[in-house]
Amino acid sequence: MEDYIEVINNSQLFAGVTEAETKSMLQCLSATTKEFVKNSYILRCGDLVSSVCLVLAGSVLLVKEDYWGNQNIVTRIQAGQIFAETYACVEGQPLGVSAVAAEKTRVLYLDVHRILSTCPTACGFHTRMIRNLMSILAYKNLIFNEKITHLSQRTTRSKLLSYLSAEAARCGSASFDIAFNRQQLADYLSVDRSAMSNELCKMRDEGLLRFARNHFELSGQ
């Protein structure tokens, strides 16, 4: 775990906590780690979770699966970000999505009960972590509402324009990389991959954007 202290300390969950405090808190929170190979399940829909999961290396896809195994990607979790925190905080609530390793991935598990129950000494850095967790939950609610905006668009083009506009605004630039490959983006927007690819090519030919793999550059036209 020592090899990942920098990743942990730079995460939003540990914002404002010194490296020495981080090491102390990892012991206090009964932290453990586990490694997963690409495409393996970290958590499955229906699981009961009691830990906040922090990605130390690699990335994780949160996916919603129907009865027939069709997947809809909810979001992608990068190194330094957390997942499953909402379900961990609501005791007895089965997980509504599955977490799948998008690549070789290592995950840190933090006991949510120890996070939410302050130390007997009411240490300041523990209180900061609780505030950080609340901030993350609020931010993810905003991201969820943003996705609803994308999905509420009626056409594949409108969904793409909504998503790409939001990513450009988030990056503060018309040139940016997205976290998804083509199939993952189609799943995220709940559209057919072929139709989406055709629409991207049409928009490129119309001068609205340029792209190469997961890099996009929007035009002012």
Rank of each mutant, 00 (worst) to 15 (best):
L13N: 00
I115Y: 05
T32F: 06
E6N: 12
M196P: 07
A57Y: 05
T75E: 13
D205V: 08
D187H: 08
L142T: 14
N39V: 03
T155A: 08
E217L: 14
F216R: 02
L164V: 12
N214M: 04
G172Q: 10
R44Y: 15
E103S: 09
E35D: 11
E35H: 14
A138K: 13
S219L: 04
M1I: 15
A102N: 13
D205G: 02
F83C: 03
S98R: 10
S194A: 13
L56M: 12
Q221L: 07
R213C: 10
Y139G: 04
N70A: 10
Y67D: 14
I148K: 09
E206V: 06
L108Q: 06
I178V: 08
T32P: 11
V52P: 01
N39G: 01
T18C: 02
H126G: 06
F144T: 11
L43W: 03
L61P: 03
M1W: 01
T149M: 15
R154N: 05
N214S: 08
T32R: 13
L137V: 08
V107F: 00
I77N: 04
G69M: 11
P120E: 07
M25T: 04
Y109W: 04
A102Y: 01
S98V: 12
Y87A: 12
V191W: 00
V74R: 07
G80K: 07
C53K: 04
I115K: 00
E6F: 06
V107S: 03
